[in-house]
């Protein structure tokens, strides 16, 4: 697989604070990568450096392509809270940025119209952006990032401001783009990442603490997790109380995670046999990304 972008030892210091600390990773062509981490982990700083808005203190960004002098040509960037000139219409704005990004001036309007149609703003294209709602701004933000068909699309929390329906729609659009675009996006909503991601990068306090494909990360972190179904919530609660192992409860189901093969399921069942709780079902479950995230972020 071909590498589109490679960054080595990327560091951004603000005085003594290191917002991004010695990050090295690469992005393969037409894959999508999620930057995962809590607020303040350095996700926006990393994306801003890639977008050319911030200059790194040390480290290098290398992009594949014939003209890498100004990598802004190859990039589309959607900030977390995109701001638009309120006095321009969506179409005027998209057409302008298309021209600025090197789209053939004669084609710019047509491309802008197609892109607005694609993100679902076809009927609002002649409205001033000052009248746009949050969701419409996010769509327009996506439109301006993709109108020039960039090789690399950088998205900062692309869906966190949206309602579930809008979120799904935007994720579907991104999936369509994935065919010929390399996507790097930050998120703290982990279900987004589960949807469509080839590579996961976990950031914590500016450091890259874990990376790998969804499967690799899962295998590494997913301790066997058992779902134990009880006849009632009360019984599940009683079990959580008596369990010496990490256990949590959701309704009549207790989740018990078994680290390093301990405790053995036998021990759990033995414990149960001595109680008078009635277990109706035991099920092996995989850890959700949410749980992996908590583990990665909390370790060390």
């Amino acid at each position: 697989m071909k590498t589109l972008l490679y960054m080595q030892g990327l560091t951004k210091e603000y005085g003594k604070e290191k917002a991004v600390d010695n990050i090295t990773f690469s992005l393969n062509k037409n894959t999508s990568t999620a930057l995962i981490g809590p607020n303040g982990a350095g996700k926006t700083t990393t994306l801003s450096m890639l977008a050319g808005l911030l200059k790194q203190t040390t480290g290098s960004i290398v992009m594949d392509g014939e003209d890498t002098k100004d990598i802004r040509k190859m990039i589309g960037f959607l900030p977390q809270y995109p701001q638009f000139y309120t006095w321009l219409t969506a179409l005027e704005f998209t057409e302008m940025v298309a021209k600025l990004s090197g789209v053939e001036p004669k084609m710019a309007k047509l491309e802008a119209e197609k892109t607005l149609e694609f993100v679902g703003l076809g009927s609002a294209k002649n409205k001033k952006t000052g009248t746009f709602s949050g969701g419409m701004k996010q769509r327009l933000g996506l439109a301006q990032a993709i109108v020039h068909k960039p090789a690399l699309l950088l998205l900062d929390e692309p869906v966190s401001a949206l309602d579930p329906i809008g979120r799904r729609e935007i994720m579907n659009l991104l999936k369509e783009l994935q065919a010929n675009t390399t996507i790097l996006y930050s998120t703290h909503i982990l279900n987004d990442a589960e949807e469509m991601t080839d590579q996961l990068l976990f950031l914590r306090k500016g450091k890259l603490v874990e990376q790998g494909s969804m499967r690799e990360v899962r295998e590494k972190y997913a301790n066997p997790l058992y779902k134990m179904y009880f006849s009632s919530s009360e019984e599940a609660a009683l079990f959580v109380e008596m369990s010496p192992w990490p256990t949590r409860q959701e309704g009549p189901v207790a989740f018990i995670s078994i680290e390093d093969g301990k405790p053995k399921m036998q021990e759990v069942l033995l414990k149960l046999a001595n109680s008078n709780l009635s277990l109706s079902k035991v099920e092996r479950a995989t850890a959700s990304l949410e749980e992996i995230f908590l583990q990665v972020v909390n370790k060390g």
Binding site: A51, G52, R72, K73, P79, Y81, Q83, L100, S101, G102
Partner: peptide, 13 residues
């Protein structure tokens, strides 16, 4: 200050 410039500055201007 308003942030509108960001979407210009990310382009090859």
């Amino acid at each position: 200050k308003s942030g509108t410039a960001t979407l210009l500055y990310v382009r090859p201007i």
